[in-house]
């Protein structure tokens, strides 16, 4: 492990977080009247705007506000909700944990479903199976999550096929089955694009791997086809897929906003939409910053793990 790399990568992660925090502060409070606009809508009177600015402490000097905001983020204090008066982090934290459970199940589905399908498609390249899987992945790749969610809800939660609950969340402590039963549909809906993407990624890296010399050697040596695929092929074909999964964490953090809204899932995405509807500024700030910081950390962790696995990788990517 290269310590210089570790230090540099940590510095970049921290700097990114710092800048994102500053930008969110800037966009929501610095732009003329924007904070008051968020709270009051775009057609507020000047007097009302002044009042809101005073309430939010926006009449204080900018550097004071900025230090206050950044200090708040560092200590996990985003202030209180303008609607309920509750500390924002108390609202965000339990919801973030639920959203992470949803994301974890979604990730798991794409690994369990997409990777084997990709391998099969690669192994049966240019056959009917491959064409079916590949064209299926095209549909998956082209369906926005709000469409797949709405359609799944329409077809799988109403009488002829009443297989899943319409939404909501049941904690894991109430049992694995009801927990998973509630998570499965939103996880699939959120995942169609990533599933298709991982499938294609797996297929193309497997196709490449299966054409390589050492696979040919293994086959010539008479290694059983199943072993060729799963022992030799999988190990080498999988690394790019892992990267794709890590990068898609960001996509997931975006699509939960939609999915949670549709499935009435009490996670952070639903909180953001509610906060936007209520123009609850501190909650909006936290709702955007917390998943973003989580995403930066996830990328950081993925990079570190990757370096541990492959010491040749250095910082200057591409």
């Amino acid at each position: 492990m290269n310590y210089l790399y570790l230090v540099k990568r940590t510095a970049i992660a921290l700097l990114s977080i710092f800048i994102v925090v500053s930008v969110v502060f800037g966009v929501t409070t610095l732009l003329p009247g924007s904070a008051a606009n968020i709270v009051l809508g775009t057609e507020a009177t000047d007097a009302a705007i002044e009042q809101v600015n005073e309430d939010l402490g926006l009449d204080r000097p900018l550097p004071v506000q900025y230090v206050d905001f950044v200090g708040g983020v560092v200590t996990g204090d985003f202030g209180n909700s303008l609607i309920s008066g509750q500390p924002v982090m108390e609202m965000v934290w339990p919801r973030l944990l639920r959203t992470l459970q949803l994301a974890a199940v979604a990730m798991l589905i794409s690994v369990v479903a997409a990777i084997p399908l990709g391998i099969v498609a690669a192994a049966k390249r240019d056959t009917m199976v491959d064409h079916l899987v590949t064209s299926g992945s095209y549909v998956g790749l082209s369906i926005p999550s709000f469409v797949s969610a709405t359609l799944l809800l329409l077809f799988l939660t109403t009488p002829p096929l009443d297989l899943f609950p319409k939404g909501g969340f049941v904690p894991l402590s109430d049992g694995v089955v009801p927990w998973l039963h509630h998570l499965l549909l939103p996880a699939i809906a959120m995942n169609t694009i990533i599933l298709a993407y991982v499938l294609r990624q797996t297929r193309s890296s497997m196709v490449e791997t299966l054409e390589s010399d050492y696979i040919r050697t293994a086959r010539l040596k008479g290694v059983a086809e199943r072993n060729v695929l799963f022992k030799h092929g999988l190990r080498n074909g999988l690394l790019p897929t892992v990267t794709v999964l890590a990068l898609n964490f960001g996509w997931m953090m975006g699509s939960v906003v939609i999915i949670e809204q549709i499935f009435a899932f009490p996670g952070i995405g639903e909180l953001i939409v509610q906060a936007i509807d209520n123009r609850d500024l501190p909650v909006i700030q936290a709702g955007i910053l917390v998943p973003t910081i989580a995403f930066i950390m996830a990328n950081f962790a993925a990079d570190i793990v990757y370096t541990l696995l492959d010491p040749r990788i250095s910082l200057g990517d591409e």
């Binding site: 994102v20 966009v27 606009n37 968020i38 960001g250 953090m253 975006g254 995403f295």
Partner: peptide
């Protein structure tokens, strides 16, 4: 560019359209 990309796409869009 990396920092802009570190904000999940839909959230960045939301942030801009909230303002």
């Amino acid at each position: 560019m990396d920092i802009i990309m570190s904000v999940p796409t839909l959230l960045l869009g939301l942030l801009i359209l909230v303002v």
